[in-house]
Design a protein around this nucleic acid. Structure first.
Length: 274
DNA sequence: AAGAAGTCCTGGGCGC
DNA sequence: TGCGCCCAGGACTTCT
């Protein structure tokens, strides 16, 4: 499940490889993955474009192109964007191939077909539905303790569900939400507005540290995730609670519990997170 | 208007 | 060995 650290790692791994290259050819195997515009306009609009730079906003990878266009990619759960030297036969579930001017290729692969690609005009990026309502970047200056405190105060939903709400904060998914709450020693079922000032301060730290560690470890390869060069990350070895149901909490030794919360599996330590 | 629930997808794991 | 069932979850839509 590519979340902020995984998308950031993909961005960094692709940057030096494709910046400055031109997209010579776009092979759209499965048009279903294109969110906008139409499949024909998407392929036609991309062809001939030069890659200027790569950015990221929340879980969106943003490839900035020469003609004031941006290729926005959301990998959802099982999407992969992998650079290959060229001539590599496409893996199963490959839905698009972008052929670059040096003969290399970007392969977009997605087992469950939840991910989406879109071609957006640069000047309309801020108004684009996917990005328009995104909350602050948790690792940027705009995400402050004060923002967190104020937002939590007015929300009556459970804290775990709020952490997954991209309009509240951009980039957290199920793995890093659970890890952030464990770091902060907060029970995921607590109502957001009920957190004490100390808990809010711990949560602020927990979010930033969980994400920073994920980036330092080049992402969590729990199931499908690989970076832009097809390499797995190592953050799965550093997870404290996610996926560790029944295993001893690394802080207190009690078994990690799993509950369903908002339709999502949620892992926590009942002793450390009260 | 906030919050919850349903929907899309396929492979892997499990019970029988 | 194989069939059927459940589970994984991000963002969007629909509902209450």
């Amino acid at each position: 499940m590519p979340e902020l650290p995984e998308v950031e790692t993909i961005k960094r791994s692709l940057e030096s490889r494709i910046t400055g290259l031109t997209l010579n050819e776009v092979i759209l195997i499965n048009p279903q993955i294109v969110r906008s515009p139409s499949a024909g306009d998407f392929s036609g609009g991309l062809s001939g474009q030069k890659v200027k730079s790569i950015g990221r906003r929340g879980k969106y990878l943003l490839i900035h192109l020469s003609g004031e266009l941006i290729l926005a990619i959301h990998l959802r759960m099982t999407g992969r964007l992998v650079y290959t030297g060229g001539g590599t036969p496409p893996a199963k579930h490959t839905h698009a191939i972008l052929r670059l001017s040096n003969g290399s290729e970007l392969h977009y692969t997605d087992v469950r077909k939840f991910g989406r690609l879109a071609l957006i005009s640069s000047d309309r990026l801020e108004d684009w539905p996917g990005l328009k309502n995104l909350g602050p970047e948790p690792l940027d200056q705009g995400f402050t303790r004060d923002y967190l405190k104020k937002e939590l105060k007015r929300r009556r939903t459970r804290i775990k569900s709020l952490l997954l709400d991209q309009t509240f904060i951009a980039g957290l998914g199920n793995i890093y939400a659970d890890e952030a709450l464990h770091r902060a020693r907060i029970n995921p079922e607590k109502t957001a507005s009920s957190l004490t000032p100390r808990e809010v301060a711990r949560l602020y730290q927990g979010i930033r540290e969980a994400l920073a560690e994920g980036i330092a470890n080049r992402g969590t390869s729990f199931r499908d995730y690989v970076d832009g060069l097809g390499e797995a990350g190592s953050n799965q070895q550093s997870l404290q609670v996610y996926g560790r149901q029944g295993k001893p909490c690394l802080c207190c030794g009690l078994p990690v519990e799993r509950v369903r919360l908002g339709g999502r599996s949620t892992y926590f330590c009942p002793k450390c997170q009260r």
